[in-house]
Nucleic acid binder design. Structure first.
Lengths: 210, 210
DNA sequence: CCCATACGATACGGACCCGTCTCGTATTGG
DNA sequence: CCAATACGAGACGGGTCCGTATCGTATGGG
């Protein structure tokens, strides 16, 4: 699932592309990333994640790690990539349906300890690891926002949604409540049906209709 | 501003309450907490914060730290406490006004690097430091939610807000969009007037009114 | 067959950290 | 004045980590 890097060691230009000796064991790449995810799920901080420990827990030599990644940061970037979940299919029949599907995707993601823990951890390391943050922000956060904004615009075009509001603001009206629950609270607070509840409530508004 | 602890060392019950020798320098308590906040603002991870470094950067002996706090976790709890910002005064004239004030408080908080960075950092350490999380969750997150829910209920009672929705869900409709911006995006995305925009949009709903 | 490379294991020097303790000095109460 | 405590500085033993190097052993390509 992970797709670790090609060879990063390249000391000189000596490298003829033809690799000669024993080939790398691809299973190791996967196993390492899985170990990191498991440790994160179990509550380990990025700060507490050492290459030494990762090697130990994977049952692998340190050299095997350094043969693949130049350091912790490089490894982490690959770990993040491995979390890229496919966006849900959006049938496009109605804005409401698409929005519910999007939020439902978020809800499931919040329920999967794996991504929610990683999410929190990543958020906490933003400034310390600008590369990690940029990677995550650009590939995950911005991508989701663009998808959502596109749905909003379609809804505006069909008259399903008010066209007099900023599309991005509107998208966050839908997404924000689900995200804040996923990030700030616990998984018991992400019950089934929450996606519909939020979408319908935002659609109708908080003010009583006459 | 910070109010560090009384003496935590209490080895035995020997402690007669009358303190004899040189009294502690209260300025040190403040200076230490300020140092930690500064380091966090500058992007230091909790994991990279060592007692040794905190002492060094504050210009203080390690013993001085350990005289006040039993360890890093205790110190961090006090750091978090020092961030408790007074909740804004809620005049209670209308739900809309109160909600705008609440969200405006969040916006300002997101703008203050100090709290937003600490917020992200804390979120990232949740599982690794259950005590920290509980402290933060209970004193900050739950308190805010309760305040918001109270406002919502008042609005329901006066007919300003729909009474057919769960008050907590409704509160998150208002708070979530502001929070998700503050946490996931950058401070340029927290423009003046955002609080009103969100409140009004949620009030009216996303569906066109007839 | 043979040589390049991968593998797990482990040792290495250097860095930093923890929490305690000991200096010499400052500052208080009694 | 004196006993008690605080202070900055830093030594101390014990730990973990980093990134590199070196084992002996697998496992492939040419």
């Amino acid at each position: 699932m992970t797709y670790p890097p090609g060879d990063r060691m390249a000391e000189g230009a000596t490298g003829t592309a033809e690799r000669r000796g024993r080939p790398r064991n691809a299973a190791v790449d996967t196993a390492v990333v899985e170990t990191v995810l498991r440790l994160l799920e179990e509550g380990t901080t990025i700060g507490d994640l050492s290459m030494e420990r990762i090697a130990r827990e994977t049952g692998v030599g340190k050299a095997t790690l350094y043969r693949r990644w130049a350091g912790k940061e490089e490894l982490m970037v690959d770990v993040l990539r491995s979390l890229d979940a496919a966006d849900p299919e959006l049938p496009g029949r109605s804005a409401r349906e698409d929005l519910v599907l999007l939020l439902e995707g978020l809800r499931r993601r919040g329920l999967a300890k794996r991504s929610s823990v990683v999410l929190r951890t990543v958020l906490g390391q933003v400034k310390a690891q600008p590369r990690l943050w940029k990677e995550y922000h650009d590939t995950v956060i911005l991508a989701r926002r663009e998808t959502t904004v596109a749905v909003i615009r379609r809804g505006m075009a069909t008259g399903e949604l008010r066209a007099d509001l900023d599309a991005r603001l509107l998208s966050e009206l839908f997404v924000g409540p689900m995200l804040s629950r996923a990030v700030f609270h616990e998984s018991e607070e992400l019950p089934e049906g929450l996606a519909e509840e939020i979408v319908d409530a935002v659609m109708e508004g908080a003010r009583p209709r006459p």
